[in-house]
Simulated scan of single mutants.
Amino acid sequence: MKGKTVALTFAERIRNIVTANWQAQLNTIKVDAKGSKDDIYSSKVHYMFKKGKPYIWIREGDLHNMNIIIDERASLSVSSIIPGPLMGLLRSIRKLPARVALAGDIRPLKDDKAQIVTESLAESVMSEYETVSQASYSVSAILSSASTSSRSRSKNLQEILNESSNYNVYKFNIRSCTYIDGSGGTHDVEPEDVKASKADMLLPFSEKIIDGINQSPTRRRALIFFCFEYYNATARDALMLSIDWNGFDVLAKVPETITSSGLSQQYGWKEFRFTFTEEARDIEAFCHMLVELEEEALQSVKSYSGLG
């Protein structure tokens, strides 16, 4: 593991969020026969992030289709993946999921371009299915631990492909890009600095990997070991918060105040960053590195306790 304090840039955080997710909140300006109004219309839409741009599928009959004809200005809000027990925890500590706010222009694609984008989506979905079907035991063990409510991105996007004739496809040209952290702080990033990977075979599985780890008592204990081994922090509990090519973030319950006798009086949730020695470009590499870290941490704890 690298230096534990290596942090992601805001551009990297934005890329990770928009690449991992498949659903966003689209906002367009309401229109009528007289033109644009001041009111904003919002609804959830499906999208794919490709070559630095979101491509959006909007169901026929949705008011967005009419609004865009008159006024192309729009904004898109994408939240980080927060599955299972993690969302309940964040709410209890009043921490919001990190999210991305994009402002720009949305334009319809002609039939031939729309077909090309939809075929690209189909290829991406098929590739994700193949990755899962060929996964090693360590990967399958994590994915199978996820709750049934945690679905892979490919399964969600498959719904679009099954009903593609009922959707219109749009390209979203980004004019401004903002990262919003869990405390509500905003950080502007140049759109050209947010680049999508050519073939990302890790982030599309974020939801199931995070939930699979958090649903496993054994793996959560390993996260506790990580906090002790790399930060000398004695945690009561820990949850995987996010994953990426470079490592992962953990939310751990650690002492906030200590009495003179050394006994903790109060515990609070704190975020810890762990960085890999090399990039994990796919799900196999990530899970392999995670398992190696678990084994190292376990051996270290045993040596401390005199069991090694």
Rank of each mutant, 00 (worst) to 15 (best):
N232L: 06
N162V: 02
R13C: 01
N168I: 00
I68M: 13
E296W: 08
I68E: 10
D62R: 10
A297C: 06
I160A: 10
S154E: 03
L223F: 06
A135C: 11
R220Y: 15
V31D: 00
D112N: 09
G182M: 03
T218K: 09
Y55P: 02
M240Q: 09
S75E: 04
S216C: 07
A222H: 08
A135K: 11
I180Q: 01
E163D: 15
F272Y: 15
T131W: 00
F172K: 02
N67A: 14
V254M: 04
E190D: 13
A233G: 03
N16G: 09
Q265V: 15
F225N: 07
R221S: 09
D32V: 01
G268V: 03
G84C: 07
I210T: 08
S42L: 13
V125P: 05
T218E: 14
E278N: 13
N232Y: 07
N67I: 11
K50D: 11
K171G: 06
E159K: 15
F286P: 03
T9S: 10
A11M: 00
S80F: 03
N65S: 14
E256W: 07
A297F: 01
Q266F: 02
P85K: 15
L223E: 06
E163W: 02
L241E: 07
I180P: 01
F272I: 10
E278S: 12
S300H: 07
S77M: 14
T5H: 08
P108M: 10
A252M: 05
L89T: 08
S165R: 04
K302S: 08
S149V: 06
A114N: 02
R99E: 03
E256I: 09
V18Q: 00
I70W: 10
F248T: 01
E284M: 14
A285P: 08
E159A: 15
M126V: 04
T148K: 10
F10E: 06
S77Y: 12
G247Q: 01
I56K: 11
S140D: 13
F276N: 01
G184W: 02
T259H: 10
L263Y: 13
N246D: 03
A101C: 05
L143I: 09
Y231K: 01
A280S: 04
K195H: 02
T234D: 14
S77V: 05
A280V: 02
N27E: 05
F226K: 02
P97Q: 14
L76P: 07
A122K: 07
L90V: 07
S303G: 08
V250Q: 04
A74V: 10
V78F: 03
Q115A: 10
S145V: 03
G262C: 12
R175K: 14
D38C: 10
I58T: 12
E295R: 11
G61K: 13
F248D: 00
E207L: 07
R221A: 12
